[in-house]
């Protein structure tokens, strides 16, 4: 039995909007073990963003317990959660969220800048390794405004890898990209998965579920499906079958 990276125990999250209480999550429980590639799917309003925020320690549940790498999160202060995010979580956002006019290396170094235990030479080394891992070894000094969407997303993935996190959280990571680039990014995620990374990929695109090892579907704050994918497709193969863009 491998390590449980994430344990959710009956998570509820209520928001108060005016006089009304909105129940975004109504008791969600699941565990994710190390090395899984999980897609969390659902239509908008299903609670998947709220779930992602809680998984990413950006938000705390109203009730229930969340253990990240064995650490209970619910009772933590804001600062403690910030440190936890810094050490245990890598985020990949839909709109990349890179620092403007900043080189790829500096963008990737960013999480390590907030970790005083890491020296500047170590920081540099790890950032370059992460960039090599996402296939941007030759674009280390390119600035974020000199890169394509796919390249920016690779930088963002390198940034998510650089602190060697327990889990990588991707929020619609292919949402802003065209089909071919989306599959390139998916290939990268599958490759990371093969190397043993734990990945949670939140999306509303049902196709992506074919490429992950497990699929969780949410509706109205409940889990309606939690299934292991027995027939994982290879993003690389799909990519090859794609017609080449006429524009290319």
């Amino acid at each position: 039995m491998s390590n449980k990276v994430i344990e959710l125990q009956n998570i509820r999250r209520d928001f108060t909007v005016g006089d009304e209480t909105v129940h975004a999550l109504r008791g969600v429980s699941f565990d994710i073990t190390e090395g899984e590639f999980v897609t969390i799917m659902g239509t908008s309003g299903s609670g998947k963003s709220t779930l992602l925020n809680i998984l990413g320690c950006l938000d705390t549940p109203t009730s229930g317990e969340y253990l990240l790498d064995g650490i209970p999160v619910r009772s933590m202060s804001k600062s403690q959660r910030a440190i936890l995010r810094n050490r245990k979580i890598g985020f990949v956002f839909q709109n990349y969220n890179l620092l403007a006019k900043t080189t790829a290396t500096e963008n990737v170094e960013l999480p390590l800048m907030y970790n005083p235990d890491i020296s500047s030479s170590e920081r540099r080394k790890r950032a370059e390794e992460a960039l090599d891992a996402v296939g941007l070894g030759d674009r280390k000094e390119h600035k974020s405004n000199q890169m394509s969407g796919g390249q920016m997303q690779r930088v963002a993935i390198a940034r998510a890898l650089v602190n060697n996190p327990a889990v990588i959280l991707a929020d619609e990571a292919t949402g802003n990209l065209d089909t071919r680039t989306s599959y390139e990014i998916l290939m990268l995620f599958q490759e990371l998965h093969r190397k043993g990374r734990t990945i949670i990929f939140v999306t509303h695109n049902p196709e992506i579920a074919n490429y992950s090892s497990r699929n969780i579907r949410l509706r109205d704050g409940h889990i309606i499906e939690d299934s292991v994918n027995t027939n994982v497709l290879s993003a690389e193969e799909t990519y090859r079958t794609l017609p080449k863009d006429i524009d290319d």
Binding site: K78, S79, A82, I83, F91, N97, L99, L110, P111, Y114
Partner: peptide, 16 residues
Amino acid sequence: TKEIGLRMSVGARGID
């Protein structure tokens, strides 16, 4: 503000 949000998501505390 957005930059601040990003910095926080990668682990910057309010004080930082």
